[in-house]
Design a protein around this nucleic acid. Sequence first.
DNA 1: CGTACTATTGATAGATATCAACGCTGGTGG
DNA 2: CCACCAGCGTTGATATCTATCAATAGTACG
Lengths: 244, 244
Amino acid sequence: MANLLTRKLEAFAPLSEADRHLLDAVIREARDVGSREDLIREGDAPGDVRLILAGFACRYKRLADGRRQIMAYLVPGDFCDLHVFILKAMDHTIATLSPCRVVEIPRRRILEMPERPALARALWWAALVDEATLREWLVNIGARPAEQRVAHLLCELLLRLRTVGLTNHDSYELPITQTELADTVGLTNVHVNRVLQRLRGDGLITLRGKHLVILDVERLNAFSGFTPNYLHLAAPNSVAEQSH
Amino acid sequence: MANLLTRKLEAFAPLSEADRHLLDAVIREARDVGSREDLIREGDAPGDVRLILAGFACRYKRLADGRRQIMAYLVPGDFCDLHVFILKAMDHTIATLSPCRVVEIPRRRILEMPERPALARALWWAALVDEATLREWLVNIGARPAEQRVAHLLCELLLRLRTVGLTNHDSYELPITQTELADTVGLTNVHVNRVLQRLRGDGLITLRGKHLVILDVERLNAFSGFTPNYLHLAAPNSVAEQSH
DNA sequence: CGTACTATTGATAGATATCAACGCTGGTGG
DNA sequence: CCACCAGCGTTGATATCTATCAATAGTACG
């Protein structure tokens, strides 16, 4: 299996053999983290750069009334905090949603990237896509009704997971609870439950346990208003399918 | 009057005399743009870097049903697109909300920044703060009820405008329509209108025309759950007051 | 002094949250 | 291996919030 990270970064532009080797080296010393553990907390000083190799993690904030808002999903190939080390304190918490495999990359590894222009650009790209995704989530929560909101999220995840080879045709594993889904789209767990039932009823998806199948991608895209432009993928059609 | 941009960047860390001169030079050739003009549109290729010197602008996306979501306010001292030139196409539109004064900074000016570490770090910081603000907006829209939502926005703007010297005690000019406010917090213009009335009725603010007065900052902060940590300001108390 | 936004108000509809309960499942300890 | 427990998904009834629709009143501006 190809290195997950190179695979993702090459969705932007090809890398040299040397760059790929460097990325391989970076990924060696991963560790496993259990489900629902905080990786770094709001207020902590940012340390090394973390990269998710397997599992789902998220960024979130908790409000005074106990409500929590998930602001990003981190899926395999995503960096937790590529550039934050400039800042003195984290302004949000990062936690696993499922069991995860995580690498910690020494800060200096990242700092020496400028010597490798293609790699540096690829990391830039990754950071810009993260930000663009955040903007799209804002649109999603701010302007779309409940059903299109969760549908949109499912469409986005299909593409993101596909670029790292974690889809099987139009299905993937979504190791997330309905309550967590609710915290990400700004709805109640009860309401999310009903929304999912309606999406199932409309023949758009199948979701049993943690296994999601999108029955008609075109229709789900159209329904939710999903357009992948904000993911800034180089060649939308060139991504190969691969089951884990 | 001190250079607005240096003033903002020094909210992160002091700059050298040379750096400040460079920023002064960058700002010379500004142009005026009318209200409600698009500066760059979704789909366009990013060009030079733009910086707002006066007035309010915003990032927004428009959905198929005509609804629009504003994803960021750009106030004086804010960059429109610091690093996007890596990408091939804009994924959102940037437009003025009021008459604005804008500089276009040649891309190469930005690219030579790495030779000035303090400056480079300051620009990094600005970009990270933009992203952190975006996250906070997501929390705002996703998890806070209507009144706290708009209250929170007003609290944020007070601080952001203060760091560039555009506040007068606890008041500032908010050259924005209620409908635009509605498009940013994900509510209806009618509802925003009622929310504002309640905030007025509770003695929290005064808003006549475009002039906003926050009557009790502490209370508004507490009410809306505002904490400025995500703005990553170096010295919260050291900012001087200055009326325009 | 019209004209066109913008702000405001009232009445009503619709969406989403809240509250409460129940069944299912997977894991865990006896 | 079974009994228990806790978390998760599901359902129903109801309350609350926010949107919609429609109209009127300010306000700015040519």
